[in-house]
Amino acid sequence: MRRGYSTITPAVVHALSRRTFARALGWTDYKQSVTRTQLLDLVLLIAGTTRTLFAVVTRYFGFSHQTARPAVRANLGSRDQLTARLVDALRGVARFTRRDRTRRWTCAIDVHYVPF
Rank of each mutant, 00 (worst) to 15 (best):
Met1Gln: 10
Met1His: 09
Arg2Met: 11
Arg3Gly: 11
Gly4Asp: 11
Gly4Leu: 13
Gly4Thr: 11
Ser6Met: 05
Ser6Trp: 00
Thr7His: 10
Ile8Gly: 05
Ile8Asn: 05
Ile8Tyr: 00
Val12Lys: 10
Val13Thr: 06
Val13Gly: 06
Val13Glu: 09
His14Arg: 12
Leu16Ser: 02
Ser17Leu: 15
Arg18Cys: 13
Arg19Cys: 11
Arg19Tyr: 10
Phe21Gln: 05
Phe21Lys: 04
Phe21Ala: 10
Ala22Ser: 15
Ala22Thr: 13
Arg23Phe: 02
Ala24Pro: 03
Ala24Tyr: 01
Ala24Gly: 01
Trp27Lys: 04
Thr28Gln: 15
Asp29Glu: 06
Asp29Gly: 05
Lys31Asn: 11
Lys31Phe: 00
Gln32Trp: 09
Thr35Phe: 02
Leu40Ser: 03
Leu40Asp: 02
Leu40Phe: 02
Leu40Lys: 02
Asp41Lys: 04
Asp41Arg: 03
Leu42Glu: 01
Leu42Lys: 06
Leu42Ile: 06
Leu44Asp: 04
Leu45Ser: 09
Leu45Asn: 08
Ile46Pro: 04
Ala47Gln: 13
Thr49Asn: 04
Thr49Asp: 07
Thr50Gln: 15
Thr50Leu: 11
Val56Ala: 07
Val57Trp: 02
Val57Lys: 06
Val57Glu: 01
Arg59Asp: 12
Tyr60Ile: 09
Gly62Leu: 10
Ser64Gly: 13
Thr67Leu: 07
Thr67Ile: 12
Ala68Phe: 01
Ala68Arg: 02
Ala68Ile: 07
Val72Asp: 04
Arg73Cys: 07
Arg73Ile: 14
Arg73Leu: 12
Asn75Asp: 01
Asn75Lys: 04
Asn75Gly: 05
Leu76Pro: 00
Leu76Arg: 15
Leu76Cys: 04
Ser78Trp: 00
Ser78Arg: 07
Ser78Glu: 06
Ser78Pro: 03
Arg79Cys: 06
Arg79Trp: 01
Gln81His: 13
Gln81Gly: 13
Gln81Ala: 11
Leu82Ser: 03
Ala84Arg: 15
Arg85Met: 06
Leu86Glu: 08
Val87Ser: 05
Val87Tyr: 03
Val87Ile: 13
Asp88Ser: 14
Ala89Lys: 03
Ala89Arg: 03
Ala89Leu: 03
Arg91Met: 09
Gly92Pro: 09
Val93Trp: 06
Val93Gln: 08
Arg95His: 09
Asp100Arg: 04
Asp100Gly: 02
Arg101Cys: 12
Arg101Asn: 12
Thr102Ile: 12
Arg103Ser: 07
Arg104His: 11
Trp105Ile: 05
Ala108Cys: 07
Ala108Asp: 14
Ala108Glu: 12
Ile109Arg: 08
His112Arg: 10
His112Ala: 13
Tyr113Gln: 12
Tyr113Phe: 11
Pro115Gln: 03
Phe116Ile: 00
Phe116Lys: 02
Phe116Asn: 08
Phe116Glu: 07
